[in-house]
C-alpha cells in the first residue's frame, strides 16, 4: 500500500488537472452561447441570501435570542433548497441556577446548521394599504442538520412553516416557525429535545 504522503500527492495531482479541464469546458460553453443566445442577458433571480433573527426555545434550558444566516436556491415555482446556520447563547436553566452548571464555555453556545427542502403551498398577494400589492407565499420546509450544544453533536430533524412577502423583485421578508428535534443526553438519557424557533428573515435575491 502506498504511504499516506503518496496518497495525498496522488489526490493533489488529480484535483488541479480535473479542475482545469472542468473550468476550460465552462469557458467553452460561455463562448459558444455568447451572442447566439441573447437569453443570457435576461436577469434571473434564483438565489437568495438572507439574515435571520428570532427566538429559539432550548428544551430544558431557556428561550434565547438567536442570530443566523441562510441561503436559498429557488429551483421551480414550488420548490426550493435552503441552507441555514444559527446560533444563540444559552443562559442557565432553573436547575442550574439552584446547583452547578452542567457545562460552560463555548459549549453554552447553541449552534445549528441544516439543509432543508421547501414547498410553496399557497401563493398570494397582500394589500397592506390602498394601491399597494405585494406578492406573498405560505411555505413548508423539512430537512436534516446538525446541532452543537453542551458538547454534543446531534443529528437533527427540522420541520417548519413560513410566510414570505416580496417587498420588491429583489427583497423578501419572511417569518418562520421551525422545530429542531434531536435525541439529547444532556439532562436525561435519550430524551427527544424539541427546540422551537420563531424567527424573521430578510433575503436578497440575485
Amino acid at each position: 500500500m502506498e504511504t499516506r504522503l503518496q496518497h495525498v500527492l496522488l489526490i493533489m495531482r488529480a484535483i488541479p488537472c480535473s479542475l482545469f479541464l472542468l473550468m476550460s469546458s465552462t469557458v467553452a460553453v460561455a463562448d459558444s452561447t455568447d451572442g447566439v443566445l441573447q437569453t443570457i442577458d435576461i436577469d434571473t433571480e434564483f438565489f437568495e441570501l438572507g439574515v435571520t433573527t428570532g427566538i429559539i426555545s432550548v428544551d430544558d434550558f431557556s428561550s434565547e435570542l438567536m442570530l443566523g444566516v441562510g441561503a436559498k436556491f429557488h429551483a421551480t415555482e414550488d420548490l426550493f433548497l435552503q441552507f441555514t446556520y444559527g446560533q444563540a447563547d444559552v443562559s442557565l436553566s432553573i436547575s442550574e441556577k439552584k446547583g452547578d452548571e452542567h457545562f460552560s464555555g463555548s459549549s453554552r453556545t447553541y449552534r445549528y446548521y441544516d439543509f432543508l427542502v421547501g414547498y410553496n403551498v399557497m401563493a398570494g398577494e397582500v394589500f397592506p394599504y390602498e394601491n399597494a400589492a405585494y406578492l406573498s407565499s405560505l411555505y413548508v420546509v423539512a430537512g436534516v442538520g446538525n446541532t452543537d450544544f453542551g458538547g454534543e453533536n446531534t443529528f437533527t430533524l427540522v420541520a417548519g412553516v413560513g410566510y414570505k412577502v416580496s417587498v420588491n423583485n429583489g427583497l423578501v421578508w419572511s417569518v418562520d416557525l421551525k422545530d429542531h428535534a434531536f435525541k439529547s443526553g444532556l439532562i436525561r438519557l435519550d430524551e427527544i429535545a424539541h427546540n422551537i424557533e420563531f424567527s424573521t428573515s430578510i433575503g436578497f435575491l440575485f
Partner: peptide
Amino acid sequence: TVIKRKPDWYQ
C-alpha cells in the same frame, strides 16, 4: 419585452 426570469416564469 422580456425583463426578468424567475423559476418557471418570465416577467
